[in-house]
Amino acid sequence: MVTIQKYVRAQSLEEAYTLNQNKKNRIIGGMLWTRLGRGSVGTAIDLCDLGLDRIEETEEEFSIGAMVTLRDIEVHEGLNAYAGHAVADAVKDIVGVQFRNMATVGGSIWGRFGFSDVLTVFLALDSYVELYRGGIVPLEEFANMKPDRDILVRLIVKKTPCRIIYSSVRNQRTDFPVLSCAVSHMNGEYRASIGARPGRAVLLRRESADDFPEFAAENVPVGGNMRGSAAYRTHLIKVLTERSLQGLRGE
């Protein structure tokens, strides 16, 4: 388990950013993943005093602070009304309520974990991240960036009219997904976000839904691990994408 030499509740983002430039220090989210690591953290930098634990909704967007928990987005009426319950569907099987009361959106997105249901679902929406120094970056671009010493301040989800379906396959209800899939239709374009490949989620776009399942199965790189083989994942991509498109058509 990781050891921590010092704990600081940052009183400003500038203080957190300055502390975080030392490679021995680390921003902490829910501590669920960080704690399972090895080694020593010089200073654990906590953002809990910075008011980033709120979801703010305007006519144009949802602004989700980095310290908002997965349970918060699971039960947020506005977000789930906009996304057709897809956000709740994406997080509902992540371990348990207690875990989701601790895991943060900022930690989940910043980690760009391969198994992340959170990254998968928000990639299929019109999403952006606000970085303290890097400014506002499309989530798709952020997902491909290498980790640096910046701070993820919030996740922004634009209220672009859209329909979205989230699904995943798990060997056991609260396990990591074998494959996660979010398919949306917005701005006349179909999007398929495929996660747990087992690498981090990737986003595909297509104007037509006709051959999207086959296209996704052929073009999403997959691998095998203890949860499923590469061939099984390729098969699941086709099946989940097709089912999601059927759902979008109301079938």
Binding site: I4, Y7, I28, M31, L32, R35, D46, C48, N101, M102
Partner: peptide
Amino acid sequence: GKPVLSCSALAVR
């Protein structure tokens, strides 16, 4: 009032 996992929460929090 919210259930959390005390094995993973820092006491300082």
